[in-house]
Simulated assay, not measured.
Amino acid sequence: MVETRPDSRMNTHIIRSLLTALARMGVSEICVAAGARNAPVIAALMESEGVKLWNFFEERSAAFFALGRILADRAPVAVLTTSGTAAAELLPAVIEAHYQGLPLVLVTADRPRRFRGSGAPQAIEQKDLFGPYAGPCLDVETGASLSWPTRTSGRPLHINLCLEEPLDTNQPGIDFLAHHGPPPPKPPKPPVFQLPALPSAVLASGLSPLEADAAAPVLARMGLPVFAEATANLWGAWPDRPDLAALLHPADDAALSGLDAAHILRLGGVPASRWWRDLENRPDIHVTNVSRLPFPGLARREHVQTLPWTALSALGKYRLPAATVSLPPADALPPPLEETLGEMAWMRALAASIPAGAQVFLGNSLPVREFNSVVPGIAPGVSFLANRGANG
């Protein structure tokens, strides 16, 4: 039998509290970048049941992999690091999660609070390390009172775990499946709002397939032209959805150049097109954002309103005049595949090779923009994910 020292018992208590809190928040996957300071937590996780561990040598990769898992399953995922600059490596993914509204849980092991400001090894200022890109930091230390959250919100959560030495790895685990959080709260009632009775079009991006399922019948009822990015997940035939083919247009600048609208209804994320950015200088064009994100996507405030996603169901009651869409001139269309070996030709070839029902991850901003031009004609049921929060 291994003797447990007093400080080790205190670590055991807060580690067990951490694991129980993660389980109650619905975390069932944790991306681990191992180090000496987080070794006791890893040991407890290895003794646990009902949780999947993903192992990484490098923290940045671990965090972006966690984002991919969140996008795929729409469930919170945690990433666990050791102390010092290892924690700082998470910042790029935290920024992305912030702007996509993803429940990324950051667990950073730390030295006790008394080492802060000392310049001691592996002691940086980890509390509130991620600034405005994460919610209030939960700074956990033995003897400090703390109320653990029971659910995640639509933004990153930082848990900074201060562990005393010795860092004993003789730690018990828990059964994650035995700890259930409260049921999700009922969604709030849709707000009262008005849409301007102006020639309108829809710009859609950054919708999960489930969100696109909810949006498709509303869009069909409204009958407006819909400029949809690949990540809107509205392209192709989907079971149990109305056919939107007659309404859909690619959300690239060539197609948008033919749009004459006085009101834009944005669904989901912030569009990637230059046309959207140019709306900053077009206050005559009204913009209504309907999104689970709080961001308007524009700095101007005149004629811009931002509504929560719960407003989606009320959109169908509006019968707005449709904006005029002119087809781009022939010289603005991409040349046939056999006439070029450029990037757009590669994108068209890739799009044509994607099988029905596939899941595609668009890795960065250029492929995202280029796929927006080639997504028409995609096979049925193909879903697209991307890191689009920071809209690079």
Rank of each mutant, 00 (worst) to 15 (best):
A86V: 02
L53W: 05
R319W: 05
I95V: 05
S200M: 09
P199N: 01
L90S: 02
N372Q: 02
L312T: 12
A390Q: 03
V2I: 14
W148T: 05
A86M: 11
G50F: 09
A44Q: 10
A93V: 09
A323I: 10
A262M: 13
S208C: 02
E29V: 04
S273F: 04
A134I: 07
P149S: 05
M10W: 13
V287G: 03
V105Q: 03
P184K: 03
E125G: 08
L298T: 07
N387A: 00
N55E: 11
A75S: 12
F193E: 10
A245D: 12
P271A: 05
R9W: 15
A299G: 11
L53N: 10
I264D: 06
N391D: 07
A44N: 12
T108N: 14
P199T: 02
L265Q: 03
L18I: 08
A43R: 07
A330W: 11
N364L: 00
D252C: 15
S257A: 15
K186D: 15
D240F: 13
E280P: 12
V290L: 07
G342K: 08
G206H: 04
P185Q: 06
V192N: 13
L203E: 08
A212P: 00
G84T: 07
V77E: 01
N372Y: 00
L90G: 03
S291P: 11
E58T: 08
L247R: 00
A216E: 08
R369A: 07
R369D: 04
A351R: 02
T4D: 09
R16C: 15
P217S: 06
G154V: 08
A255K: 00
E211N: 09
A215K: 03
S373I: 03
I264P: 06
R388W: 02
I264C: 08
N391V: 03
N372S: 02
P321R: 12
N281G: 08
P225S: 04
Y133A: 07
A120M: 13
H179V: 10
G26A: 10
P209D: 11
P367N: 01
P191I: 04
P283W: 08
E3V: 14
E89D: 12
F130Y: 15
P185H: 04
G206E: 07
G268E: 11
W148E: 05
G342T: 05
G143D: 14
D284I: 03
L146E: 02
A75I: 04
P121R: 06
S28P: 01
G316Q: 15
F384H: 05
A178S: 15
P283T: 13
F176S: 09
A220R: 09
L71Y: 00
A78N: 02
T142S: 15
M222T: 08
H249S: 10
L157G: 07
G26H: 09
S145Y: 04
V218F: 07
V2Q: 15
P187Y: 03
P190E: 12
P376I: 03
V374R: 02
A251N: 06
L279C: 08
K317R: 15
G135A: 13
W54G: 00
A390M: 01
I42K: 07
